[in-house]
Computed example of a mutant assay.
Amino acid sequence: MAVSRSRDRRRTRRAYVGIVVVALLLFAALSAAWLYLAGRLENEVARQIDRAREEGLSIGCANRDVFGYPFRLGIRCDAVTVDGANGMLRIAGGAIRTAAQLYRPNRIVAEIDGPLLVDTPQAPPVDLRWALTQASATFWREGLDHFALVSDAPVLSLAQPAADRQPLAEAAHTETHVRRREGDLDAAFSATQARLVMPGAPDLPPADLSLDLTVGGAADWLSGRMNGTARERLAGRPITLRSARVDLGASEADLSGTVQFDADGRMSGTLHLSLLGANEIAMLVGQAAPDLASLANTIAAVLPLAGRQENGHTVIDITARNGQLAAGIVPLGTMPRLD
């Protein structure tokens, strides 16, 4: 019996030793893998920065550091700057932290600190701030496969001299999602409690906004292949609009349908407009966008004749032919061309 117990104890000790040895080997392998990947990441980031500089874009990443050992791998900077050639672009942002799990290196998450200052010769300097902004990106064989940007309490302002700011618009929460789906591009955007706060802005109630659409054949846009103007990029591509919604509480509007633009930027297709409180919406559209006031009032006037009732909403079918809008045989006006 004593001999048997002695043998059992020796087997147990050997098992413990074996476990410790295996754990140490795994830890050493993990550490070596992390250090190798960290070096690769640092070299790749430096290579991309050098490549951007050759193309006239200077990217700064103050106090760049690789972090996340042992299970994550990421880059962090105390501040980020982007300068275009000949002063055509200047972007300055706060700290940024990006990371990916070692077991899922193709998905990168990031947290970005504000403010973000954007200055171009074509527009006044813009100041964007937020309480929290996070982003994620997933890469696959063709490159970027999915991108998401989520922000709490964003405020868009004009940057004034002497570090002053003039707020323009704000929201409680915003989300932007784009993804590759076969050869098409899906895009969705939402904003809750969005409102204009600039001096002289129309007195509009806070609105919940959402947009959900697919652009046919545009998946390569996620790979950076977006040359040309908006008119050139969209010409001939079917656009499926699942919903473009504005909810003002007591009134709301939702637009859906499929359209397409020709080479001259003129729109053709069929749209379905669902309205609750049409006259109130027309008045608010006129306040926010005076150029669209006439079209909005025309649609509100035509609704009793051309619309139908569905679930308490008035729905009108709108056809577009070479930029000319009509509800049945009733002309509504002309849609502005894409530039």
Rank of each mutant, 00 (worst) to 15 (best):
F147G: 09
L149G: 05
D152Q: 11
S157D: 02
S157K: 00
L158P: 03
A159E: 09
Q160L: 15
Q160I: 14
D164I: 03
R165M: 09
P167R: 03
P167G: 01
P167H: 02
L168P: 07
L168R: 08
A169T: 05
E170C: 06
A171W: 01
A171G: 03
T174D: 04
T174L: 06
H177T: 12
V178C: 03
R179T: 10
R180H: 11
R180W: 06
E182V: 14
E182Q: 15
E182K: 14
D184C: 01
L185A: 01
D186C: 04
D186E: 15
S190E: 11
Q193Y: 05
A194R: 06
L196T: 07
L196D: 04
L196K: 02
L196R: 12
P199H: 08
G200F: 10
A201C: 06
D203V: 12
D203I: 11
L204M: 08
P206Y: 10
P206W: 10
A207N: 05
D208W: 01
S210Y: 01
L211A: 09
L211I: 06
T214G: 04
G216Y: 00
G216F: 05
G217Q: 07
D220P: 00
W221F: 04
L222G: 09
R225I: 08
R225M: 10
G228N: 04
T229D: 02
T229K: 08
R231T: 09
E232C: 03
L234C: 10
A235W: 07
A235R: 06
G236R: 04
P238S: 07
S243E: 14
S243W: 07
A244F: 09
A250E: 14
A250I: 08
A250M: 08
S251K: 07
E252V: 11
E252D: 15
A253V: 12
D254W: 00
L255R: 02
S256Q: 01
V259H: 06
Q260C: 10
Q260I: 13
A263Y: 09
A263P: 00
D264H: 11
T270M: 11
L271V: 01
H272W: 13
S274G: 13
L276D: 15
L276G: 15
L276E: 15
A278E: 10
E280H: 08
M283K: 14
L284T: 04
